[in-house]
Design a protein around this nucleic acid. Structure first.
Lengths: 230, 230
DNA sequence: TAACTTATGGTACATTTGACTACAAGTCAG
DNA sequence: CTGACTTGTAGTCAAATGTACCATAAGTTA
């Protein structure tokens, strides 16, 4: 792991990452244990300082990777938290980022100032330092809203997936049964799924066609006022 | 925190405000003319520096009030913009806030570093400095998204309003014509509008029935998985 | 080969949408 | 008073979409 220590940090501005994992119909959150600083030993959201020569988006990716080893995920900005006393020793404004991933796809490598990194069930999250519990609550609230309006769950599946896998994912998130045939028709008509030429292998029944999510097509659609509803 | 820092600005962190106004069935945006600094003479979003002793929400209100005289409005945070080169002379991250108001309710008093403050039609917004045009676009996009998923905008109308008034509001925000009859049917079926027994007065044509928004009904519906679409 | 599993395509009906029409209710000019 | 004019309100109808099924395809396993 490469660290960019030569870059100066902006010491009033930090990033905190909300990495949600979806596993066994439960939402998990990725926390790290601080190895130094004022909250040494405590579990907290992976976070760190923005540097002068990085966009805030890039800072978020770097910080997450340095602390947990998780890389190559699509982080989106949630919002900034800027209460005067949210940080104990000085004034710090933090920008929260979030992502929803499949925990199995990542092996955690705690690093930099983190001595450990672990998935916590939302119901078992301990008391977190600063305003991290509040940030987490905001993130959960936003996620539940968002999952109903955008195809946010595609990164929980392998790059190439069958329509049934996709359907089961939505059934789990929305907590209701969907009709296979109608689900298929509806999703395909939206035009942001493209059929790979391949088929499923190693299954003991007829192999299903594999599809992948085309983000470019999806973005085109959203610009034209398309809305995603299931 | 040191006393000397109390009113000092955090010079890497600014606020920019997107104040949308709904007037004559058009969406306007509030801009100020810079009286000093590197973009003197140019029109831009009302913006300024965060200080050490204020929450970012409070900073936003103060800045808006200082520059335009507009106070007591509910500002919501949009998001932070943190590209490395968004500001020409140094690294500045800005947090954008927005609000949707009735311009008639406010008299503009340009002040502080602003020599003028004026409402611009969205279609007549000039080229703005920094990344302000992009911020504005993001704001409009968010507003359009939001208005389709939540019944916002009711605060722009009198407590009791006609369906045509409501329709014109939506036409302005979505920037498209809607069919009167269909709009009526659709909104009424959603069951969160309740008819007052009263009718419009002082109009030189047939008086329309007055309605009001019932937030309690609306909340009940959302809990049962209801979605708001136009 | 028969039995079984999942994939995929279709059908029939109900509901919703969108464009348009008709008529109601009130104002205003003459 | 009358007829032109404005906006409100209700309805029609065809097209699009959603929903609950059914039928057949394609492969596996015993």
């Amino acid at each position: 792991m490469k660290k960019v220590l030569q870059n100066t940090t902006i010491d009033t501005l930090s990033i905190d990452c909300l990495i949600f994992g979806f596993k066994k119909n439960e939402l998990d959150i990725l926390l790290v244990q601080h190895g130094e600083g004022i909250s040494k030993g405590k579990w907290a959201l992976p976070g760190g300082w923005i540097t002068y020569n990085e966009s805030i988006d890039k800072s978020a990716s770097r910080i997450l990777n340095d602390l947990t080893g998780v890389s190559n995920i699509y982080l989106e900005q949630l919002k900034a938290f800027g209460g005067v006393n949210r940080y104990p020793t000085k004034r710090v404004i933090t920008i929260a980022y979030y992502a929803l991933v499949k925990p199995e796809n990542y092996t955690l490598h705690p690093g930099f100032t983190a001595t450990d990194a672990k998935w916590f069930r939302l119901s078992e999250v301990p008391h977190l330092p600063y305003d991290h519990n509040m940030i987490l609550l905001e993130g959960v609230k936003y996620l539940k809203h968002k999952v109903r309006h955008e195809p946010i769950g595609f990164n929980l599946l392998p790059k190439k997936f069958t329509l049934l896998q996709l359907q089961q994912l939505y059934e789990a998130i929305l907590d209701k049964k969907l009709d296979k045939s109608n689900f298929r028709r509806k999703l395909l008509k939206m035009n942001f799924l493209e059929a790979c030429k391949e088929k499923q292998t190693a299954v003991s029944h007829r192999a299903a066609g594999l599809f992948q999510f085309n983000k470019r097509t999806y973005n085109n659609l959203t610009e034209k006022g398309f809305t995603f509803e299931l």
